[in-house]
Computed example of a mutant assay.
Amino acid sequence: MHALIIEDQTLIAMLVEDSLRRCGFTSFDFAISKDDAVRSAQARCPDLITADVELDPGSGIDAVDQICVGPPIPVVFVTGSPLEVSERMPQHLMLLKPFESDDLIAIVKIALARADNARQNWHTN
């Protein structure tokens, strides 16, 4: 499985990658800005996106909004800005920074299960 990690702090991106490897992900793209994220997703559609809200430059919310226009892609926001996610992207799961690896793994499993259900509904409509 392939994941897109949208995070402008290298150490946090590495922690997310390590957790996702424990979930069975084997390939990764990393994006530090909205534009990098959109380009990465266009080049290779991810099976999962993790995103921070505040990027330098840009916003992870804006990146996800632009990327997720077709079949459902599971998204987990890993952020210190929960209010903006709650207001603009309440359909996606969120994990607050700082986070524990086991918590990220648990929430990723929930996001993947939700996306499987959404994809089945999307293809039947």
Results as ranks from 00 to 15, higher is better:
55 L>D: 03
51 A>W: 12
112 L>E: 14
95 L>C: 07
114 R>T: 14
92 H>Q: 05
57 P>E: 04
47 D>W: 02
83 L>M: 13
38 V>D: 06
84 E>M: 12
65 D>N: 12
94 M>L: 14
64 V>L: 08
69 V>S: 07
74 P>M: 00
99 F>Q: 09
54 E>I: 11
80 G>E: 06
57 P>S: 03
103 D>W: 09
111 A>M: 10
70 G>I: 01
92 H>S: 05
47 D>L: 05
79 T>L: 06
88 R>L: 12
98 P>E: 11
106 A>D: 13
76 V>T: 06
64 V>R: 04
92 H>R: 06
49 I>N: 02
43 A>F: 03
114 R>C: 15
66 Q>A: 14
43 A>N: 11
36 D>C: 01
94 M>V: 15
100 E>D: 13
111 A>T: 08
101 S>R: 14
57 P>D: 00
102 D>S: 13
64 V>C: 10
108 V>H: 09
42 Q>L: 07
83 L>P: 00
59 S>P: 08
112 L>R: 15
70 G>N: 10
77 F>V: 00
86 S>M: 13
55 L>G: 05
91 Q>Y: 04
87 E>S: 13
101 S>G: 13
52 D>P: 00
43 A>M: 08
61 I>L: 10
89 M>L: 08
113 A>R: 13
81 S>G: 07
68 C>T: 10
82 P>T: 01
